[in-house]
């Protein structure tokens, strides 16, 4: 299977990032993580392990939470990618971001962008999540600072904030 003579050719990959279409010239196996950070200067997506264990590089691809360190660039051709930079809209923080500030969900901050996106994913699936749903939904995002308690509080705080906002919207 191995082929020391292989030489990759650069190719153009077009996809949308936070709603804006981008085309990058890249080697096909370049990690999406590196394309975001290096080619598009979106450094909010972090590298914690490079092996899909820690979740610091979490982004959404076509609406699914994924580890961007495990995705070769050519696989996002035509896809929709959403990163932490696209979460706050018009200068206003997302409810999950506000909750992380309020409830102490961020300490050193390296896991935070991925953790915030994982929390967004939990709340999309479970607007009124149980403790177990939160724990399972965040289990792919390692944090070494908080011991997770304040992160759980943050998710629950955000759920309440979203519910109360949606309630107001419906009224």
């Amino acid at each position: 299977m191995s082929d020391a003579e292989a030489r990759a050719e650069r190719l153009a990959v077009t996809f949308t990032v936070n709603g804006v279409e981008k085309t990058v010239e890249t080697l096909p196996m370049k990690r999406l993580l590196d394309v975001l950070r290096e080619d598009l200067a979106l450094t909010g997506t972090k590298e914690g392990c490079g092996e899909g264990e820690c979740g610091a590089c979490s982004v959404f691809v076509d609406g699914r939470l994924v580890n961007s360190c495990l995705i070769p660039a050519l696989q996002v051709e035509g896809s929709r990618v959403d990163t932490i930079e696209g979460l706050a809209r018009g200068g206003e923080l997302h409810a999950v971001q506000r909750a992380f500030l309020e409830a102490g969900g961020a300490q050193c901050g390296i896991c935070t962008p991925g953790m915030v996106l994982a929390a967004v994913d939990v709340l999309r699936k479970h607007p009124n999540p149980t403790d177990e749903q939160v724990r399972e939904g965040l289990a792919g995002n390692l944090c070494r600072c908080t011991g997770y308690m304040k992160i759980f509080d943050s998710v629950m705080t955000a759920a309440l904030a979203i519910a109360s906002r949606d309630g107001e919207g419906a009224a």
């Binding site: 909010g44 971001q97 992380f100 961020a106 935070t112």
Partner: peptide, 20 residues
């Protein structure tokens, strides 16, 4: 429980670590 000084930069991904 005053809010974390650099909190907004951390939750938005704006904080610049050395690799950034």
């Amino acid at each position: 429980s005053a809010p974390r000084k650099e909190g907004v930069d951390k939750v938005t991904g704006a904080a610049r670590y050395v690799d950034d």
